[in-house]
């Protein structure tokens, strides 16, 4: 299979009430449930994007994990860049799907809301990242029952081989009833970690 010679320039994790970048802890708040934890992380990381508070849990998780990587690129905020986004997870948008379903379960108390319904698609979080960072780029959301470094690496290579992206943000952002986990990484021409399945798996498990 055709390969590319790219590198993992940076990576981020959000899990177990911590936010880290390149393996270094940026924020920790051990005592809070997810909604309070992610809000505290947003404040501590100086995110400055009020639209964040309208997002659902999955979008907040993906947005913050991507923001950690993208705000280090000075030009990402003022000059357009072709950074594709390839995300994956297990639970799709089921956390918000259940909320929408609950709003229509009782015919006597029927209150479907467009503000909830719009988040019943996993790729909405890619839209949120794209809006903030002005990324008019390739995006796709895949669902697997577990983290698949192979699929992410192959699809990312395909984007480079087909000249569809200069850089790619790839990874896993999963939010389910009681669990959450984000692992994102930025693939580019720069860096010292080779972009391949083995390294993606290693960084995921760090």
């Amino acid at each position: 299979m055709l390969k590319t010679n790219k590198f993992i320039q940076s990576y981020s994790h959000i899990r177990n009430n911590t936010v880290s970048k390149n393996g270094t802890l940026l924020f920790e708040n051990a005592s809070e449930a997810f909604p309070d934890f992610i809000k505290a992380a947003y404040n501590a990381l100086d995110t400055g994007y009020p639209k964040f508070f309208k997002m659902d849990n999955l979008s907040k998780l993906a947005f913050l994990a991507a923001d950690v990587l993208l705000k280090e690129i000075p030009s990402a905020t003022n000059k357009e860049q072709n950074i594709a986004i390839v995300l994956s997870n297990r639970a799709s948008s089921l956390d918000t799907d259940r909320k929408h379903q609950a709003s229509i379960a009782n015919k006597e108390d029927y209150f479907p809301s467009p503000a909830v319904f719009v988040y019943t698609l996993p790729n909405i979080c890619i839209g949120e990242i794209s809006i903030k960072h002005r990324l008019f780029s390739e995006n796709s959301f895949f669902i697997f029952d577990r983290f698949s470094a192979e699929h992410l690496a192959d699809y990312t290579n395909g984007l480079f081989l087909n000249n569809k992206a200069e850089k790619v943000i790839g990874g896993w952002v999963d939010f389910d009833t009681d669990t959450y986990e984000a692992f994102l990484y930025l693939v580019s021409d720069k860096g010292s970690i080779p972009h391949n399945k083995k390294e993606i798996n290693r960084l995921y498990r760090l």
């Binding site: 909405i124 839209g127 794209s130 809006i131």
Partner: peptide, 11 residues
């Protein structure tokens, strides 16, 4: 083929 985002609005 190509797939590009609007980077404008979620809905």
């Amino acid at each position: 083929d190509a797939s590009c985002n609007d980077a404008n609005h979620i809905s």
